[in-house]
Design a protein around this nucleic acid. Structure first.
Lengths: 232, 232
DNA sequence: AAAAGGTGTTGTACCTAGTACAACATACTT
DNA sequence: AAGTATGTTGTACTAGGTACAACACCTTTT
């Protein structure tokens, strides 16, 4: 299993065990788990026991497995890597209060974008993405904004940079429209994108115009708080 | 390393690697990492590479390591185990809006309590606990309430059950006061505790009395939403 | 009621594959 | 230029992880 440079196969097997769980299948039996990762039941059992010992997995009464609380703790520490939660969380709350739409911060993580923070509006029935979710870079306004400011190719991206924002209507998810603007840190380095999302019906040209000013003001505040040049 | 029943040592080593990271030391060099887990540098390197392959660890430009985004995703799935975020999050927001204090939900996880959800008030400068943090069961109102409804021993706990709530003033953390009430699911089974926290100065007898009604109303709503008997 | 399928679990033997050690390549200090 | 950090690769040894088969315990089937 160790791919290019040497790794530890057992560890990778354990990781794939964790990956077997999803929002829908958050509790799996040993057999099902073994089937999904294509390993022997006995092997899975022993790995799972070790994971459980460290709180990464938990066993419920009926002997089936689910992810453990330690993952929440670790995920949280990951978030604190960005040392920005103290600034971002109240800022998102403000944005929601002012615009009535849900607000989120996305950062690039490899060839995807990660929803790092999120604050839902009261009206939001259907979340587009939850904190921790990864979505494509080339679909949806928050992703396209990130691409526009990290790679130079493509006329669409030139236009986004010229405008300083981007809006999409159901591009990634037909039920979601979004407006996004870039956030910078340490000068002119892209940190990620700040976005408002909601049902396309509410995203009229007029509404976007009104909310865009609020969004951009928030982005400027956030950028300068992180040592970035706000950008025009 | 495999403790009582057979496990996989390499997996446990990998888990301890993840545990080496904290809020403060969220980025560690290979050497530092090896020192902390008391393993050879080469061993740590290989394990870390495998973890990185699955997004559980990430390497930054200067070759040091930090926790990976996959942990956020997994932590999120763990949360969804409780299938209650859709109800709880807006409920906490409401509580904060009505009381002006921070609100949180704790559940029991072994011999500790886990902060499962949290919503900070605008006034809160200092968070007492963040989502994913584990705190002692026998310190602080949310913990004591959980104990009162899951174990019967101790006169303090009898009193808490009689009152239906509990308040503490800097018991766990000198700078934090809290009021907590139980939440039930599926009849009369304890789900966890719902709490308001803030600086002791603001938690006057009068303020508690006022906020307690709001808190209990929220707990009743939450309990019945989860199929629990609200309790008087 | 016995048989057939479904769980999870343990023991064992083979041999992979993970580990520790030492050697090496860089990069800063002094 | 010697000294002390860092991360990295190669190698030899054997610890330890794996697959298989056997087992115990359930339900459901016939």
């Amino acid at each position: 299993m160790p791919g290019n440079s040497a790794g530890v196969a057992a560890v990778e097997r354990a990781a794939s065990l964790l990956e077997a769980f999803t929002d829908r299948d958050f509790t799996l039996s040993l057999g099902e788990l073994a089937r999904r990762v294509e390993l022997d039941k006995a092997t899975v059992l022993r790995i799972a026991r070790s994971l459980a010992k460290y709180g990464l997995l938990i066993r419920n009464e009926d002997a089936s497995w689910r992810l453990g609380p330690k993952l929440m703790k670790l995920g949280n520490i990951y978030q604190s890597t960005f040392r920005a939660s103290d600034i971002i969380e109240p800022l998102l709350a403000d944005l929601v209060a002012q615009t009535g739409e849900s607000a989120a911060v996305y950062v690039r993580e490899g060839q995807e974008r990660l929803c790092l923070f999120r604050h839902d509006s009261h009206q939001s029935i259907r979340h587009s993405a939850r904190v921790g979710d990864t979505l494509p870079l080339d679909r949806g306004a928050p992703g396209r904004v990130i691409l526009a400011y990290s790679e130079r190719s493509g006329t669409i991206y030139d236009e986004i940079r010229a405008a300083g924002y981007h809006a999409t209507f159901g591009e990634r998810d037909p039920q979601v429209a979004s407006v996004a603007v870039p956030v910078f840190r340490d000068g002119r380095n892209l940190f990620g994108s700040l976005a408002l999302t909601g049902p396309p019906a509410r995203f009229t040209e007029e509404a976007i115009k009104r909310n865009l000013e609020i969004l951009m003001a928030a982005a400027r505040r956030l950028s300068s708080a992180m040592g970035g040049e706000p950008g025009t």
